[in-house]
């Protein structure tokens, strides 16, 4: 088996918010094509960690490499890293004044310099992939939560990222809409996308995750494959937390 490429390399990541230390020196590597689920109680630093990778939160210590490119320091090129990392938010954050198609085609045109024809063709292809080919002219206000999140995933994919970051992608959804979003994510995982997902969707974890990371109080407590961590967690804190959510 050939050596896997290191896609995300987090080294000693620290984030000091002043009142709390959200990240206390986190080390984590994610290989190309790997799906990593990050779980933990609220305030454990899991979202902060994810948001540090494209510098929506600036680290106060440590370093992160995305496909070898540093996030911090004089050689850091934040726009390159942001082009290479797609992000999906809990609240979708679609642009309400743009149609579904425009939401998806905008960044490839403005950031990557794609022609409108190229960008729109790609956007239509992505809409089809997330099962919304008939909604290209809809504004976000006319879409359900699940549809919005699928458009948001398509929007992130349009930049052809090397890594996809999902920050609680199903937490704001009504229960009946969770599945349609998870199905899209599952497809993506099976196609070999490198994914980091902050979520407590155990079904998704068992079906798609290679490893599950349990975080608490700004630290990684335990990392293990889903079946191991859910059924035979080693650490007391992990067991206690899992008992609450399972």
């Amino acid at each position: 088996m050939s050596e896997k490429r290191l896609m995300v390399d987090i080294r000693g990541a620290e984030k000091d918010f002043g009142i709390v230390m959200a990240l206390k020196g986190v080390n984590l590597t994610v290989d190309e094509g790997e799906v990593v689920l990050i779980i933990g109680p609220s305030g454990s630093g899991k979202s902060t960690l994810l948001r540090s990778i494209n510098r929506l939160e600036a680290l106060t210590g440590g370093q992160i490499f995305v496909d070898g490119d540093p996030l911090v320091g004089p050689e850091a090129d934040i726009r390159k890293i942001r082009e290479e990392t797609g992000m999906v938010f809990q609240d979708f954050n679609l642009f309400p004044h743009k149609t579904a198609l425009e939401n998806i085609s905008m960044a490839p045109m403005k950031v990557k310099g794609k022609t409108p024809e190229e960008a729109r063709a790609k956007a239509r292809e992505l809409l089809k992939r997330v099962g919304l080919e008939d909604r290209e002219k809809s504004y976000p206000g006319q879409l359900s939560g699940g549809q919005k999140q699928r458009v948001a995933i398509a929007r992130a994919l349009a930049m052809e990222p090397k890594v996809m970051l999902f920050d609680e992608p199903t937490s704001a959804l009504d229960p009946e809409m969770v599945k349609e979003v998870l199905d899209v994510m599952l497809d993506l995982a099976q196609e070999g996308m490198t994914m980091m997902v902050v979520s407590h969707e155990m079904g998704f974890a068992r079906a798609a995750a290679d490893r599950v990371v349990f975080m608490d109080e700004g630290e990684i407590v335990e990392i293990a494959p889903p079946d191991v961590i859910f059924d035979h967690a080693e650490e007391e804190r992990t067991k206690k937390f899992l008992k609450h959510i399972l």
Binding site: L56, R82, E83, T85, F89, N93, F95, A107, K110, A156
Partner: peptide, 22 residues
């Protein structure tokens, strides 16, 4: 909402582009 700027930045837009377009 703050998320609008974050979404634009996460897509690789500059602050200026995000302000002007979003």
């Amino acid at each position: 909402p703050k998320g609008q700027m974050e979404a634009a930045l996460a897509l690789g837009m500059t602050r200026g582009q995000a302000m002007r377009l979003i």
